[in-house]
Nucleic acid binder design. Structure first.
Length: 499
RNA sequence: GGGCCGUUAGCUCAGCAGGUAGAGCACCUGACUCUUAAUCAGGGGGUCGCAGGUUCGAAUCCUGCACGGCCCA
């Protein structure tokens, strides 16, 4: 069936060429987008025509309503949809016949005409001239129900975007948000920088890396799991406010909130501590929410989330003690372990660090409203500075919203001796079987020995933030081209050499 | 890795006391000069995810596999 349509379209393309019409011309001078047209002519009364105005626009034909010698059709562009009207008596008869015969839903057209409002009050472009800009060879999904199959939506996102306005809208919001974040930080004096994605030592986080090979040096390399250590080297070098927005790669499970390839933003500010980073975080995210929705409150999966600053500050030790009755600092490991066993949690490695992480996992989903989870124990925070009041803790926080860790931030550890000790402790965890434990990075120690000023650092997971901002239940919904298994492309080659 | 659900026309879905596959949209032909899920008349289109099994007979029942979704680890 799809082959039938493709052959039919191929035939039409040949016929158009024989009429001297190029079905794939080179350019069109688009002057107005649908939003601008809507804003300019919304004032028209039903039935009113503005024959002296000239509109030049272009887009994809979505639907066609043909009535013999006249035809209504809707055109969609990035800004929206607009109706157009073409009549035999207004264009050359031959051009009308060609429109009637060859223009179909899915095709791109350029149109020149004037605005009017139909009897029913819909703003419409009265077509004086049109040009086929690209002929579609495949049928569009159903015009009423759209595309619902999630597999197809993920594999062929372009079809999802064509068929479902909400999908296009979701990605517009994503890139508006990213643009806002860049502006926000730039206005505060931060410089956008870059760091290597190919690393010899994957650092800055707890994760299994992707391994790749550098042929030129015949050695293994890793895709970065976080840009953190390089960004701090910028601060050592003399930058004072930097950020990097980009992809990280973690060779771990895939779930509704985990993607092997994800986007983060990391921000570092010299002379600041984690309190400054909390202020930055809540101001950045709440003003982003306000920028997008005109309110600090949004709905996520049926729950109202209130981003109004200041956000709740919650100490990790106290919260776990309140909820589970154990003290992650003072209780013996066998007590932590028994609490976990009672809750049915199995430990992959028997370290105190892992136990603390698992205990937190048990209560994480009880934190719904935007919250800063603070002051993590030192053994699970190898890059954070010890707490000024209790050296067993660190000056660290994670913004938690709707039970999801949205990021991670610290007063950065800048004491090279302590950092070396932390790396060594991490190596012990590694020996105990923790594959995610941090690796040794002597050059980073060397950098700290040259001197890192007091620095506040912050990382935010952009994809998870976008889930919240677009009410999306899965991280795949906010990644335009999510990871899917290899596809079957049989329908492309088969019959593509249609006569 | 485990559990549940799903996979039928390009799309959205019916069909499952087992009896040789349907609708709407889309597509093709024709009619129609203010429609908007346009309308009207006619037509074409399916290895029912794949492979086995049970049966005279399987889209339907059973087993395995693949792909996907959701939940759990």
């Amino acid at each position: 069936m799809i082959e039938e349509v493709r052959k039919q379209r191929a035939k039409e393309v040949e016929e158009l060429r024989s009429h001297g019409i190029n079905p794939y011309p080179y350019r069109f001078e688009k002057r107005h987008d649908t939003k601008a047209i809507r804003q300019a002519y919304d004032f028209l009364q039903p039935g009113q025509l503005l024959e002296n105005e000239k509109i030049i626009t272009a887009g994809r034909v979505m639907t066609i309503r043909l009535h013999g010698k006249s035809c209504f059709f809707t055109v969609r562009d990035f800004e929206g949809k607009i109706q157009a009207y073409i009549r035999q008596e207004e264009v050359l008869e031959q051009k009308y016949e060609i429109f009637k015969k060859y223009i179909a839903p899915g095709d791109f057209v350029g149109i020149i005409g004037f605005p009017f409002k139909s009897k029913t009050g819909e703003l419409t472009i009265y077509v004086k001239e049109y040009q086929l800009l690209s002929k579609a060879r495949r049928p569009l999904p159903e015009k009423w129900h759209g595309l619902k199959d999630k597999e197809v939506a993920y594999r062929r996102r372009y079809v999802d975007m064509i068929a479902n306005d909400s999908t296009l809208e979701r990605f517009k919001i994503r890139y508006q948000a990213i643009s806002f974040i860049r502006d926000f930080l730039t206005k505060r004096g931060f410089v956008e920088v870059e760091t290597p994605i190919l690393n010899f030592i994957p650092g800055g986080g707890a994760a299994k890396p992707f391994v790749t090979k550098l042929e030129a040096l015949d050695c293994e390399m890793y895709l970065r799991i976080a840009p953190e250590l390089h960004l701090k080297r910028y601060i050592v070098g003399g930058f004072e406010k930097v950020f990097e927005l980009g992809k990280n790669f973690r060779n771990e499970g895939i779930s509704y909130k985990h993607s092997p390839e994800f986007t983060s933003i990391e921000v570092y500010q010299a002379y600041a501590d984690y309190h400054d980073m909390m202020e930055l975080t809540e101001t950045l995210i709440s003003s982003l929410v306000f920028h997008l929705y005109g309110s600090y409150k949004i709905n996520y999966q049926g729950t109202e989330l209130d981003f109004t600053p200041p956000w709740r500050r919650l100490k990790m030790r106290e919260f776990i003690r309140d909820k589970l009755g154990v003290d992650i600092l003072e209780d013996e490991e066998r007590i932590l372990e028994r609490t976990l066993k009672d809750k049915g949690v199995e430990l992959d490695t028997n370290t105190r660090a892992r136990m603390i992480e698992k205990l937190w996992d048990l209560v994480e989903d009880q934190v719904i409203q935007p919250t800063f989870l603070m002051d993590h124990p030192v053994e699970i925070s190898p890059l954070a500075k010890r707490h000024r009041e209790d050296p067993r803790l660190t000056e660290r926080f994670e913004p938690i919203i709707y039970g999801m860790e949205l990021g991670n931030a610290f007063s950065e550890l800048n004491d090279p001796e302590d950092q070396l000790e932390r790396f060594k402790s991490q190596l012990k965890l590694r020996d105990a079987g923790d594959e995610e434990a941090h690796r040794m990075d002597f050059d980073f120690i060397r950098a700290l020995e040259y001197g890192l000023p007091p620095t506040g650092g912050l990382g935010i997971g952009i994809d998870r933030l976008m889930m919240l901002l677009t009410d999306s239940p899965s991280i795949r919904d906010v990644i335009a081209f999510p990871l899917v298994t290899q596809s079957d492309d049989e329908d492309v080659t088969e019959g593509s050499a249609a006569e």
